[in-house]
Design a protein around this nucleic acid. Sequence first.
DNA 1: ATGTGTGAATTACTTCACAGCG
DNA 2: CGCTGTGAAGTAATTCACACAT
Lengths: 217, 217
Amino acid sequence: MDVSPNAIPDVVVRRLPIYARSLAYLAEEGVRSVSSQELGERIGVTAAQIRKDLSYFGEFGKQGIGYNVEYLLGHIRRILGLNEAWPVVLVGAGHLGRAIARYEGFRSRGIDIVGVFDADPTKIGMELGKLRVQPNTDLPAMIRQQHIRLAIVAVPAHLAQEVVDGLVENGVQGILNYAPVVVQVPEGVWVRHIDPVALLHSMTYYLAREEERAHTG
Amino acid sequence: MDVSPNAIPDVVVRRLPIYARSLAYLAEEGVRSVSSQELGERIGVTAAQIRKDLSYFGEFGKQGIGYNVEYLLGHIRRILGLNEAWPVVLVGAGHLGRAIARYEGFRSRGIDIVGVFDADPTKIGMELGKLRVQPNTDLPAMIRQQHIRLAIVAVPAHLAQEVVDGLVENGVQGILNYAPVVVQVPEGVWVRHIDPVALLHSMTYYLAREEERAHTG
DNA sequence: ATGTGTGAATTACTTCACAGCG
DNA sequence: CGCTGTGAAGTAATTCACACAT
């Protein structure tokens, strides 16, 4: 995480894509202008939060009016580096990997899966939409030749760390990890974890309390 | 979110499942005892953070020694309400829903998918491991009869809100939402979002900066 | 020695509240 | 007026640092 004195807080960076998506939906609906209040209600965030977040990057609104949807969306896209598409490799062609490869929602949001890789010979060659599963051994060459900086990891937990090490070694700087394990990466590499079980458990915590309260209270 | 004066912060609750999983791995490896330092290194959290988090719930360690892995794991499981399995319904049997239904990692962590539902008649009856896709119309009865409190939503964005409304109406109190939209729920219902595109975008932000710096610096 | 548990200090994040612009 | 942009105020989360137990 960048710790420079005037760096933008990571929480803010993580909210920007949510703003962007909500604005994209608004644009599709034909909405021209939106206030921080309205946008906030859509995504469960306070109006002040949105205004403060945006103020890190500039002034995008008009007083008394609100934000022009297309204009603000364009700005946030640029801030997020989404002017052009990002090529991404996907490692792991199990049930989950295949579902990810077939998901239609990446392309339109600037994420372009350009290769799917697996170590299992029985999976090599499988067709997944326009992609075909390639052997893991071809992965380094593709990353280097196409200067790929982002990867999605969808392999079993016990393989995740070595897969990540290999990716980083070949120049990948951002990893979306679906494996249920916290992977270690060197300075300068970003990781985000997708962890459905942990999220469910963080809800069972509250539900279990409630049940308890119902019985005791 | 519970706002009682002595409520446990949600950030803490969200970390507990990560601690639990790391402890489970340690137990599998045959490790008996672990210090906050060691555990922290495994999951990228400071030792002080772990000790502080645990201190909300009691005293589980031994000074000079650390934590007994099995003992602490048992406690965290109980705190999270994982003494017994939680039945969960899954709505949506597209590529993603089917991958979720087939994922082996839920059962062993107390999450038991007991039904898969879809509105699309061509999907009804599909076999997914031991499960069979059922029509959405059967969903309310199952939730009510089996007192199901948790659901996983894997439907297209434009259907997510109405699916969630239906779930909540029938008594679901916790929702894991894979649809790329922030859904609204009434007080007392929990939602967690899984949003791969947003996570990737939060990384492109940093990668784009770096690139820029490399060009200008 | 080693490593927990925890008040105190620090840092980070959010909300307030209002000047000022359209 | 209505709504932004933003310092200031207020909360929340993290880290420090050390007494104390083994």
